[in-house]
């Protein structure tokens, strides 16, 4: 990637000092240090160099089986498109814009931490929960392992430990909620990114930043902040140099997903009135005089 970082970030004007300290751009930019409300991350795929340090940091953070940092330099891994699974919560894939096939670009994928997550709506026991400050978290103790969350997620993110016979868990990115985001910490991947492709901050600020970058460099980005509107909005958002169709991120409508079923559920079971009404009606029919109509005649 030939473009200088500084050119890119425009409005961000990052200072490299804090970069080394592992602080995110968000902090330097006067984004609130503590984002109790709606933490978010902006992934700039045009800046990402595909170094996969975020994968390494994620594996370390979550005690997943990891390799030496050097092993992540291996570019042959991009030959196949990988997906996050129960052993890796985030992966980086390489994509090419058909109109500019010489230049690859990279997309990190993980749970999008939807604003109105389908997985949370699906879960039979409330084992998945959207925290007010952004992360969608999982409680293995509650989980019964029905995998409805896997069926429901529009990004195909939750991964199941199918190989675990006794205590399988649903695995996915936790947004590093265990690092206590409210106290000024950033997710491990954001901290690890050497190129500031990942920006942590409040969702509103990041949307502003994303549009400002598009405006400042219209030839470097498509005019689309992925995740701003998809399925009602997500906490992780993306900028890309070419149409998102080239990447593995699915094309999704702006409508939130859960109302599809929740509206039905709530209409049918509102204060238990419809079931109770049905009960009463059937009770009345049953209590009324037995039907004397001689049906046998009809069929004889």
């Amino acid at each position: 990637m030939s473009l200088g970082r500084r050119d890119f970030l425009g409005l961000a004007a990052a200072s490299s000092v804090t970069l080394l300290a592992g602080k995110s751009l968000a902090n330097e930019q006067q984004l609130p240090k503590e984002c109790k409300d709606a933490c978010a991350v902006l992934v700039d795929t045009a800046v990402c160099i595909g170094c996969r340090k975020c994968e390494w940091a994620c594996n370390r953070q979550h005690n997943l089986s990891n390799q030496d940092m050097a092993a992540f330099d291996d570019k042959t891994i991009f030959k196949i498109q990988r997906r996050p699974d129960d052993k890796a919560y985030t992966v980086v894939n390489e994509f090419r814009d058909p109109s500019n096939p010489e230049k690859p670009y990279y997309t990190k994928v993980q749970c999008m931490h939807c604003l109105d997550p389908a997985c949370v709506s699906a879960c039979i026991v409330g084992a998945l929960e959207k925290l007010p400050n952004g992360p969608v978290v999982y409680d293995a103790w509650k989980c019964i392992g029905c995998r409805y969350c896997i069926v429901a997620c529009p990004f195909q993110i939750p991964a199941y430990e199918y190989d675990n016979a006794l205590t399988p868990q649903v695995r996915k990115c936790t947004f590093c909620t265990e690092r206590n985001l409210a106290e000024g910490n950033v997710p491990a991947c954001v901290e690890a990114c050497p190129n500031e492709a990942l920006t942590f901050g409040t969702r509103d600020d990041l949307i502003g930043l994303a549009h400002a970058r598009i405006k400042a460099y219209p030839d470097r980005y498509v005019d689309h902040v992925y995740g701003e509107h998809e399925v009602g909005g997500t906490s992780w958002m993306y900028l890309a140099p070419a149409d998102f169709k080239n990447t593995e991120l699915p094309e999704l409508p702006p409508d939130r997903i859960p109302p599809n079923t929740e509206n039905i559920q709530h209409a049918v079971f509102k204060w238990f009135v419809p079931p109770l009404a049905l009960y009463g009606l059937l009770g009345l029919i049953m209590a009324s005089k037995p039907d004397k109509e001689n049906e046998q005649e009809a069929e004889k």
Binding site: A122, C123, I124, V125, G126, T261, E262, I264, Q265, H266
Partner: peptide
């Protein structure tokens, strides 16, 4: 653990 939003809960 009741999750009234989930159709699966309702089924269960």
């Amino acid at each position: 653990m009741w999750q009234g939003n989930s159709a699966l809960f309702e089924v269960g």
